[in-house]
Amino acid sequence: MTILLIAEHDNSAVKADTLKAVNAATAIGGDIHVLVAGANCSAAADEAAKISGVAKVLVADNEAYEHQLAENMGLLVSDLGKDYSHIVSPATTTGKNFMPRVAALLDVAQISDIIAVHSEDSFDRPIYAGNAIATVKSSDAIKVLTVRVAAFSEAGTDGSAEVVAVDAVHDAGISSFVSAELTKSERPELGAARVIISGGRGMQNGENFKLLEGIADKLGAAIGASRAAVDAGFVPNDMQVGQTGKIVAPELYIAVGISGAIQHLAGMKDSKVIVAINKDPEAPIFQIADYGLVADLFDVLPELEAAL
């Protein structure tokens, strides 16, 4: 039994999502080979080789993989993956994009977003926005899985796997990268943050999100948002926490001016400690919060920043 795990990386470094997916793969058992597919990605491959529990790193270094276009990744991973028992990727927007193509090309099902491993063929995954947990069993010869990274801790980095180059170049030639607008921030990414402070519709506008920044800086926190705040145009889409946005499980989640719609709760209810600040005492967010404060956020936020 050998697992092919597809690394999430930006060509220069592997993301924490990869370390978490390795821990999920370790729970399945068997050797773990990590594929780093990118362009000029040897630095990321060297990092992947240090992840504890990894036996081998495959590097597919070619401009066809620079932006990990789904069409090219689908061909590469289904080609490399046919001799493996499992193909695993973190359920990031990159993994979600190409993994179903891999499964379809191999004529097997995909099991999305696993949150627990029972055995080599049986897994838990949330359905209905996390309001139910399905335990499923796959009879496919190759199991294609994406991992909800918020449900697993990070693997260590004391490994020393061999690094092997993959020569295969798959360029489907039907898609191309045009541009990317990536949010630049000194703060941790939502998926990797120990503390997250999120704002909702109650923030009223994008300008007011500045009130969260000072607190975030003091706590080393990432800043998130509810769907309502993103839909209203207060902040960009990559800040959205929820069923269809980022799923997070930090040590501390502070929800500010967020009522607690089902789809938002689906994205943060596994946080260790939840704080809710809302002026509406009936807001559903209070039903799952460990600590609730009924107050006007515009009074509370400056006070909180000063108190930290």
């Binding site: 932006h67 276009l69 990031t92 927007t93 990159t94 039907i174 898609s175 191309s176 990268f177 045009v178 541009s179 990317a180 607008e181 990536l182 949010t183 990414e189 998926g191 960009p236 889409n237 990559d238 980022k246």
Partner: peptide
């Protein structure tokens, strides 16, 4: 234009 983890990405498709 696609909503991805870090922001937005634009791709061109045949």
């Amino acid at each position: 234009t696609r909503e991805i983890d870090g922001g937005l990405q634009t791709v061109e498709l045949s």
